[in-house]
Write a protein that binds this DNA or RNA. Structure first.
Lengths: 194, 194
DNA sequence: GTTAGCATGTAAGGAGTTACATGATTTT
DNA sequence: AAAATCATGTAACTCCTTACATGCTAAC
């Protein structure tokens, strides 16, 4: 059933689940979710909010919205019941899409609202994905090392090390997931896991 | 004069300056220029080549193109005189655009064709850019540390360390630029430095 | 003989940006 | 009273992707 939900929409749903917010504040929080590199502009945020309202996943929180006379006023948004459902649906997804570059960061940001077994699957999927990439890059480098100039080589090398560093980071995260409280966390069987 | 040249166009010009190539091969080389993350699809490469031909910056190398009967044949492209000019123009640019995320990697990949003083300016500009970013992220973390959950914090921390790591890398590159042959390279004072 | 890789292209569309337009509130 | 930051929104546009369409060539 669930239609394609872009990463931005997912991030908005996730943030609104924590607490109702208005657009401006939402954007600031989004900066924490997407790294320092990708910051969302109002030109994409507001149309996104508009569409989420149209789809019925979020609603204007009339109680919290400040709309005095003459004021343009802040419009505060909150999740609807359908929005919560959709969010849970999306956060439960542990398919390949969850560990691709675009979505992984957002998925991780909302791990607090994600089941332990799903978290582990996503982390491991991501690690495998990166290990494949590392293989590809390093074998490509092996084949063409002599033909590349200093700078291209430097670039490739740095890229390779970035991938390796992320793998180490994932290993730590995975270890932490499995480590303390692993009895409670892991043994909590996925109820109705597909 | 010079119209806006996207990063893809710049990368194509840069690669064709090294040697004439056909689209398929070009794409493989582009994978080395843009990291393992961003790979260019044919859906953007071929239209790009088309436009560069239309603009007169590249031309089909009729000598090298294999176009036997019935065969669709490879179309080999090479730089035109205007293309070379445009490339030199672009590679000489050491303005802020050169060290932004989208272009920096490409600019570095073609440092072999870039003047030493321009190289240094771009590397330093990039480093300053990243230091600003590091400041912003780490101060934002300081302000909100308590309010963030484990995973968001982990994400921010990893992002911060990525930035710091790139700064260290840049420091090495800058040191190397200044190191061997530094008398010639560095003592060449920036003439008319603004 | 079929799988994988080589090779070129188009049409439709997604996901976002920039630039603009507007105005209130807070700080200096 | 000026500057910064808060706050919302639209229109035009850019860049790139996906999915499709086509066919050759080498290896297994």
């Amino acid at each position: 059933m669930s239609r394609k939900t872009g990463v931005l929409e997912l991030a908005v749903l996730g943030l609104l689940h924590e607490s109702p917010l208005h657009g401006y504040e939402l954007r600031k929080r989004l900066s924490a979710v997407f790294g320092p590199v990708k910051r969302i502009s109002y030109g994409s945020l507001y149309p996104c909010l508009k569409e989420l309202v149209a789809t019925g996943l979020i609603a204007e929180d009339t109680a919290a919205s400040v709309t005095g006379v003459g004021k343009r006023g802040r419009t505060v948004y909150k999740l609807t019941a359908e929005g919560k459902e959709r969010l849970q649906d999306q956060l439960g997804d542990h398919g390949p899409a969850a560990w691709e570059d675009e979505s992984f960061g957002v998925r991780l940001a909302f791990f607090g609202q994600t089941d332990a077994d799903v978290r582990l699957k996503i982390l491991e999927g991501r690690r495998t994905r990166l290990e494949e990439r590392r293989e590809k890059v390093s074998s490509a480098m092996g084949r063409t090392r002599e033909k590349l100039d200093r700078y291209t080589l430097e670039l490739q090398q740095h890229g390779l090390e970035s991938v390796e560093r992320e793998v180490r980071w994932l290993n730590e995260l995975i270890a932490t997931e499995r480590g303390p409280g692993s009895h409670a966390a892991v043994s909590a069987r996925p109820r109705s896991a597909k």
